[in-house]
Amino acid sequence: MPKEGRFMAIITVKNLSKTFKVKLKEKGLKGSIKSIFKPKYKVVRAVNNISFEVEKGEIIAFIGPNGAGKSTTIKMLTGILYPNKGEVNVLDINPVVNRKKLAYQIGTVFGQKEQLWTHLTPYDNFKFFGAIYDIPEAAVEKKIEEFNEVFELSEFINTPVRNLSLGQRIRCEIVASLIHEPKVLFLDEPTIGLDPVVKENIRTLIKRMNKEYKTTIFLTSHDVGDIEKLCKRVIIINDGKIVLDDSMENLKYHYLNKKIVEVKMREKVNLDNEEGITILKDKGYNLKIEVDITKKSVTDALKLLNPENIVDINISNIPLEDIISTIYKEGI
């Protein structure tokens, strides 16, 4: 038994696969009648032989385009879905065998699904969740008080959930899933549909949780901001397969050997056929180029443009969003 050290794996996934049978339906009356008597199915591989590990205290982003298998994976990790093949271990518990035991140790927030009673106040909801996890009443009350302070809930803790804003609701959803002090928290699209300010709030909350309670966080999101601001490690899944599992730094570094240069010039410059330079946009005096710094340094590129000739300039990294969508499109 390894000591609680830095390299203890909290989640282990080995060769995990999940397939769904999808019923095909043909159009029209004939199709409907046919589908009653002779349904046709198509087998969809939602998750295809994936393996990875997550360490204690990590905040990990599990991302991918729609239908890539993110939710399916998260659902297998939390015991909602049964895998077809492979092994899952969360906190040394196999979700298939011991769903209830695992449930005491993990928390889940599904951004699009509400777990709270909307006619009750957050306070009553938290107490309800306390009861679900068999926490003695006094302990729950203490916990709520603590959360009230740490996560600044006092403003709305006694207002029925249905009267709360979407952001406040999500905050309560997250806090409700923390009542039993889970060791791992699964967040599926926690910031979906929220405005930028609220998003920032939620991110702060997640960070604080990770710091104060050492909660391991497994997060899926379409929001690059979530990923960039929270996570140190990213797993990208596409078509049911893991296409990238790397640290945030490496991911950026890998693509950081390219810079985007936008310039406004007095005279036109011809950069065709220059090695290491790709022209992204050319509107006469306005030019947008991508410089591959392994082939041409930024200084050399600027020399080609002639500093005397430049009216305005902006040099930037490739946005993470573009990096990710390139990976989605091309794989690695």
Binding site: V22, K23, L24, K25, E26, K27, K42, S71, T72, L81
Partner: peptide
């Protein structure tokens, strides 16, 4: 879960 979809041809 909610993965059961009916695909239309």
């Amino acid at each position: 879960s909610s993965n059961l979809m009916i695909a239309r041809i």
